[in-house]
Design a binder for these strands. Structure first.
Length: 370
DNA sequence: AACGCGGGGAG
DNA sequence: CTCCCAGCGTT
């Protein structure tokens, strides 16, 4: 019990440098705040919530026109809840992260069912598509609750102002606690919605990721990052794990008309459901020829290795593939889709196109791009 | 704690 | 090219 209390105390120990005054940022905000569509008009939780969901990992420039269009089509949460799912997908198309649209629709229906938006962080957090960030953002901006949402902007501003050198994502709880400290100041408590948006605007216009405009920042005097010269290098991020190198062997089978054998990949996982050139699985250990041949679409054919390797980078590993080519023996039948090289070039994902390019370079297939 | 999930813009 | 964007849900 005491141990837990002490740990809590340690976590809330004030930083060595004091937080700069929230009032200074608010004064700057009053002069320099961005004019954004969702800041005009009534402070309607529906409009705020919609903007926050659209803005998840999406830039203001991309969201603004889409927010206006969405609102024109679904003016209220009731209208959105009553709309068929097809209409929502149509309106969301092109915005990316389509799970957001699904959760948006479900959330609208939940909100209507309960008779309106809840006004506390905890209840907002329980709704579909609303996480810690969005719950705090809606609570503060739409309902004036004194809570600071921790987004990329607030992380960056706080890490710099307080010179937090601990890397993300580990530093997140510390940054959240520090940023919330501003909201405890009287000036911020008097204007929670404005203070939250002031942090966003500072991060988006001056305290930007590269080349921050410290010289004109309202908090420059109290900024530890500026004083120490660390500001432009913060926040730090945990180094990404080195991408392992994986290898695979693929088999390019051509028929008499020069068409290529492709096969549909399993529906889930990497390149799920896409067409592919048959081959071995991709693994870190290399493949012996005998081992690889067990994955050939046809065991008895004039398989010959093509010179060179095809390389492709995925998020989590680097891939190098070698290619064997053969022609379909007369009378043989093989399961799969036969496509002309030009058609294959349009249907294949990038990794497979590298193989196709390798085959073209070796003269093993007709040019697919000519 | 680590991933997958889209698409676009800046440097 | 890489990084970043008013992150969330799943494993």
């Amino acid at each position: 019990m005491i141990r837990v209390a002490l740990r809590r105390l340690a976590a809330s120990v004030p930083p060595s440098a004091p937080l700069p005054p929230a009032g200074d940022l608010l004064a700057w905000y009053d002069r320099h705040r961005r004019t954004l569509p969702w800041r005009a008009g009534p402070r309607d939780p529906y409009r705020i919530w919609l903007s926050e969901v659209m803005l998840q990992q999406t830039t203001v420039a991309a969201v603004a026109p889409r927010w206006l269009r969405f609102l024109a089509r679904f003016p209220t949460v009731e209208a959105l809840a009553a709309a068929p799912w097809e209409d929502v997908t149509e309106e969301w198309a092109g915005l990316g992260y389509y799970a957001r649209a699904r959760n948006l629709h479900a959330c609208a229906r939940a909100v209507v069912a309960r008779g309106g938006f809840p006004d506390t962080v905890e209840e907002l957090r329980a709704l579909p598509g609303i996480g810690a960030y969005t719950a705090a953002a809606v609570a503060s901006i739409a309902f004036g609750r004194p809570v600071v949402p921790l987004d990329g902007n607030v992380e960056r501003v706080t890490a710099r102002v307080m010179a937090v050198e601990e890397p993300l994502p580990g530093a997140r709880p510390r940054l959240a606690a520090l940023a919330q400290g501003w909201m405890e100041q009287a000036a911020a408590r008097a204007r929670p919605a404005d203070f939250t948006q002031a942090l966003f605007d500072l991060g988006a216009t001056l305290c930007v990721p590269r080349n921050p405009a410290c010289a004109i920042c309202p908090w420059q005097a109290g900024c530890e990052g500026r004083r120490t010269g660390l500001a432009p290098t913060l926040p730090r991020k945990a180094p990404k794990a080195a991408r392992p190198l994986k290898r695979g062997v693929h088999f390019l089978l051509s028929d008499a008309e020069g068409r290529l054998l492709l096969r549909r990949r399993p529906p889930n996982g990497l390149l799920g459901g896409m067409l592919g050139i048959p081959g071995t699985p991709w693994r870190e250990e290399g493949w012996s020829m005998e081992e690889a041949m067990a994955h050939a679409p046809l065991a008895t054919a004039n398989w010959r290795p093509l010179p060179g390797e095809a390389k492709h980078g995925f998020t989590h590993f680097e891939l190098r593939m070698t290619l064997l080519a053969a022609t379909l023996p007369p009378g043989a039948r093989v399961e799969g889709d036969w496509l002309a090289p030009a058609a294959a070039a349009l249907a294949l994902p990038g990794a497979m196109l590298r193989l196709l390019a390798l085959a073209e370079a070796a003269g093993a297939v007709a040019s697919a791009t000519a």
